[in-house]
Simulated assay, not measured.
Amino acid sequence: MTDLWVVRHGQTEWSANGRHTSVTDLPLTGHGEEQALALCGHLRPDDFGLVLSSPRRRARHTAELAGFTGAHEPVLDDDLAEWAYGDYEGRTSDDIQQDVPGWTIWTHPVPNGESADQVTERLDRVVARVRDSGVERAICFGHGHALRALAMRWLGFDLRLGLHFPLDTSTISVLGQEKGEPALERWNARV
């Protein structure tokens, strides 16, 4: 079984203040660039037989600053884009909860955004792509909610459990196996 490393992009202005960011294509902040540069040396591009990234520039730029350039440049995969927040784009959870008490992306609908079933479907395609790749190790650069959802699908869990797996900017997580079964080897590790 292929081990899948997942890397959340470095900090953006909106991730720093908790605003939901899917289709808004924000750049990394100066701090976010420093975070991404710090990944260089902790991630060796030659160690990965498959390198994928969300098409959003914050994920692509994180990969670039981490040393994934040239022959190791990621293949862009729309299935790794962040959960589409629809009407909640740019809003914080606290703000949304003023209108919808108890709202979370994991438990409530997203008006004009993606449903949990839609996210499950596309991230199941990522899981299949990685598992069918035949490589020893793959890596994905992406976003907080989408990567948490990807981990849930890797493990065969319902997306709602993603609530219990916080994922900070510019962290490394490893999805692998234990005795032939999908397993979480490392989560939310800072460099």
Rank of each mutant, 00 (worst) to 15 (best):
D47I: 02
P109H: 05
L39T: 02
H61E: 15
P109K: 05
G86Q: 02
Q11G: 00
P166I: 10
H42V: 07
T92Y: 01
D95R: 12
G41T: 05
G10Y: 08
Y85Q: 00
A38T: 07
H9F: 05
L155I: 04
Q35D: 06
Q98T: 12
L65H: 03
V51R: 14
A116N: 15
T62A: 10
R186S: 12
V126F: 01
P74N: 01
A149G: 12
G30D: 10
W14Y: 11
M152H: 03
L175C: 03
G162M: 01
T29I: 04
W187P: 12
L80S: 06
L28M: 07
L147M: 07
S93H: 06
T120I: 06
L163M: 04
D95Y: 11
E181I: 06
L150C: 14
R129S: 08
D3V: 11
L159K: 10
R148G: 08
W106T: 06
R125C: 00
G142N: 07
I105A: 13
S22T: 08
G70C: 00
D99V: 00
V130G: 08
G113V: 03
V130R: 07
M1P: 05
E33Q: 15
K179P: 01
E185C: 04
D79P: 03
P111F: 08
I139Q: 12
H42Y: 10
E13Q: 13
M152W: 04
N112S: 09
W5E: 13
E34T: 06
E64A: 15
G162F: 03
R131M: 14
C40K: 11
G18D: 06
L123W: 09
Q97R: 15
T107F: 13
L123Q: 10
T24H: 05
W83Q: 09
G86H: 03
H108A: 14
T24A: 12
L80V: 04
D168V: 11
W103M: 02
R148Q: 13
T29G: 06
H145G: 05
L123K: 07
L50K: 08
R122H: 05
S170Q: 14
D94Q: 08
S133C: 11
D25F: 11
D78K: 13
V23I: 13
D87V: 05
S22L: 04
G113M: 06
L150K: 15
P101T: 09
S173C: 00
V7A: 02
I172H: 08
G30R: 09
S53A: 14
